[in-house]
Amino acid sequence: MDNITALGGDVYEIDTKMAGYRGITAGYLILGDRPCLVETGTSTSAPVVRDALASLGVGPDDLATVVVTHIHLDHAGGVGDIAEFFPSAQIVVHEKGARHLADPSRLMASARMVWGDKLDTLFGELSPTEAERIVALGDTGAIDLGNGRTLSSHYSPGHAKHHVGLVDSATGDLYVGDAAGVYLPETGDLRPATPPPDFDLDTALNSIALFEALGPQRLLFSHYGPVDAVQETLERSAEELRVWVDLTRQAHSEGMDLDHAVAMVRDRTKERYSPPKSEDDGGVREQFELLSGAPSNVAGILHWLNRASPQKPG
């Protein structure tokens, strides 16, 4: 299938074809003795992911585990559907996200407030998962991949309070979710992902420092793909966070509203990123902008600043 890439070590990247686009959200299959899917993608992507697993020889009763880095709908929106397709699989998530997978009503209501009519085309509906199939992780945990291989989880909030990073003991791969930002493979650009309501700068920087301390061999971004330059990329991730926060803090101290703050931050950061190389790239970038764009990032940083210093003087 044209949406599967072998990454070595029995790891396969699956393009979930989110909203019909290529190269936006990746799921990863670790095809060991106990096959494990990392990230499901959206609900509307679930049949794409199921078919990819089938083509790799993973049938309805073969998938042992589904683990999501966090419960945002581009990563975990398909959990309920995938759980139905693969009835033997355990569903693994941080304890702060577990209840939302069992009862997604509050999560879906808040997502609809943010996305409105775009919700159905972008994400679809997160279906509930039976509570007894959900394994809730604490600050650390281990997922058995079989034959002595494990996927260890490490609590890494900052982007979201229910976020974990995952390290494969066999490959040294670190599944970073959104905690290290959004990576654009066409250009090697990396941008932060700081949406409301959970973003917190110090927490996010601590999570990146934790990722560095884990000493991974490779970073696997949910958006999008594998990166070998681990140290350099994590340093860039921290730098991008600081740049976006500094600019948004300046806009905040000058009393700008969200629209003006977004325009200023966009203008001051545009030199940091390569222009699109082609119309096709432009389409991909447009979708990245929708998922983790300046309005969402600046809104998340302003939300944090207002919590930290509601009456910040100019």
Rank of each mutant, 00 (worst) to 15 (best):
D2F: 07
Y12D: 08
T16L: 09
K17R: 10
Y21Q: 07
G23S: 00
G27C: 09
Y28P: 02
D33T: 00
A46T: 02
R50F: 07
R50Q: 09
D51N: 14
G59E: 04
T65P: 00
V67A: 12
V68W: 06
G77W: 00
H94A: 07
R99N: 14
H100M: 01
P104K: 05
L107K: 10
A111K: 01
D120L: 04
T129D: 04
E130K: 05
E130C: 04
A131I: 03
I134L: 01
T140F: 05
G146V: 00
G148C: 08
R149F: 03
S152E: 14
S152F: 03
G158N: 08
K161L: 15
V167H: 06
V176I: 08
P185I: 07
P185M: 05
T187A: 10
A193G: 03
P196A: 13
N206W: 01
F211E: 13
L219K: 01
S222P: 12
Y224S: 11
G225R: 07
D228S: 06
D228Y: 01
E232I: 05
L247R: 03
R249F: 00
Q250Y: 11
E254K: 06
A263H: 05
A263D: 08
R266M: 11
R268P: 03
K270M: 10
Y273M: 13
G282S: 14
G283V: 07
L290T: 11
N306C: 06
S309L: 08
Q311L: 13
